[in-house]
Every structure is written in C-alpha cells, then in structure tokens.
Deep mutational scan, measured.
Amino acid sequence: MRVFPVYAPKLIVKHARIFLTGVIWVKDLGRLEFEKGRFLLPRKSLPKVKQAILELNELIEAQN
C-alpha cells in the first residue's frame, strides 16, 4: 500500500497504471482500491471521495 500525503491526481494515476491492482491511501480521502488500472467506487463513500475517483478514472481514460 502506497501512502500519498496530498491529493496529486497525476501521480496517483501513474501509480495505478504501473501496478494495475492494489490499494493506496490518500490523506483526506482515505483508502482507494484499483483493479486493472481503474479505481473502484466503494458502495458507500463521501461525495468528495466519489468525485476524486471519477476524476482519476477520467484521467486514466484520457491517457489511453
């Protein structure tokens, strides 16, 4: 598990694309899981977490 002390979308996306499957922890967002290079949306999450995951997945799609 990698810990990101700040929310840096480009760096987080780079990590997810390299490792494809895993878990990261982002300060103020908490634990985020990714599989096959995409972030998974938890069943229950705060609106800011949901927005961050959608933003990260959009960045991943834009890079493909």
Rank of each mutant, 00 (worst) to 15 (best):
V13F: 03
L11E: 13
K48C: 07
F4M: 03
K27E: 15
K27Y: 15
G30M: 03
W25C: 14
A62F: 10
T21Y: 07
V3W: 15
Q51T: 08
K36I: 05
L56M: 08
Y7T: 01
S45Y: 10
P5L: 15
E58G: 12
E55T: 07
E33A: 14
V26T: 03
P42A: 09
I18N: 10
H15V: 05
K50H: 08
E55Y: 12
I53R: 00
F4K: 00
K27N: 15
L11A: 12
E55C: 06
G37Q: 06
A62P: 05
L59H: 05
F34G: 01
F19H: 08
K14R: 13
K36S: 12
I18W: 13
L54T: 10
I18T: 13
E33T: 15
P9N: 02
E61N: 14
R17C: 06
K27D: 15
R31H: 04
W25R: 05
G22A: 04
K14C: 12
F4P: 01
I60W: 13
G22H: 02
K44H: 08
G37V: 06
L11S: 11
R38N: 06
L11C: 11
A8Y: 08
A16Y: 03
R43H: 06
D28L: 11
W25K: 07
V49D: 01
L11Q: 09
L56S: 00
N57G: 01
R43D: 05
F4S: 00
R43Q: 07
L41M: 11
G37W: 02
L54E: 06
L11G: 06
F19I: 14
I18L: 11
K27F: 13
A16K: 00
K14P: 05
I24M: 06
F39G: 01
P9A: 07
A62V: 11
E35R: 14
L54F: 11
R2H: 15
I12T: 01
F4W: 02
I24P: 00
A62I: 13
G30K: 01
E58I: 10
L29E: 00
G37D: 03
A52C: 07
R2K: 15
R43T: 06
V26Q: 01
P5A: 13
V13Q: 04
R17W: 07
V3K: 14
P47N: 12
P47Y: 09
L32F: 14
A8E: 08
V26F: 01
F19D: 05
L59W: 07
K36H: 14
P42K: 13
T21A: 11
L40P: 04
L54A: 11
W25G: 03
P47C: 09
E61F: 09
R31F: 08
G37L: 06
H15A: 04
L29N: 00
K44W: 10
L40Y: 06
L41H: 11
Y7H: 02
V49W: 03
P47R: 15
K36T: 15
P47L: 13
L56F: 03
K10R: 09
V26Y: 01
L20M: 12
P9I: 04
K36N: 12
I12R: 01
E33N: 15
V6M: 08
V6H: 09
Q63H: 10
A52E: 02
F19Q: 12
R17L: 13
H15L: 04
T21R: 13
D28N: 15
V3S: 08
E61P: 03
L41A: 09
Y7E: 01
K44F: 08
I53K: 00
K44A: 07
F34M: 06
K10M: 11
M1V: 15
V23G: 03
K14A: 14
P9S: 03
E55S: 08
L46N: 11
L54C: 07
L40F: 06
K44E: 06
A52K: 08
I60V: 08
I12K: 01
L32E: 01
A8S: 10
V6N: 05
E33D: 14
I12Q: 01
K10Y: 14
E35W: 12
N57I: 02
V13D: 00
V13I: 09
E58T: 12
A52V: 08
G37I: 05
I53L: 06
I12A: 01
G30T: 02
K27H: 15
N64P: 10
K50R: 12
F4E: 01
L46K: 15
V6F: 14
E33S: 15
L32R: 00
F4N: 01
Q51C: 10
I12C: 02
P42D: 06
L20R: 10
T21W: 09
N57E: 03
G30V: 01
R43L: 08
K44C: 09
L40M: 11
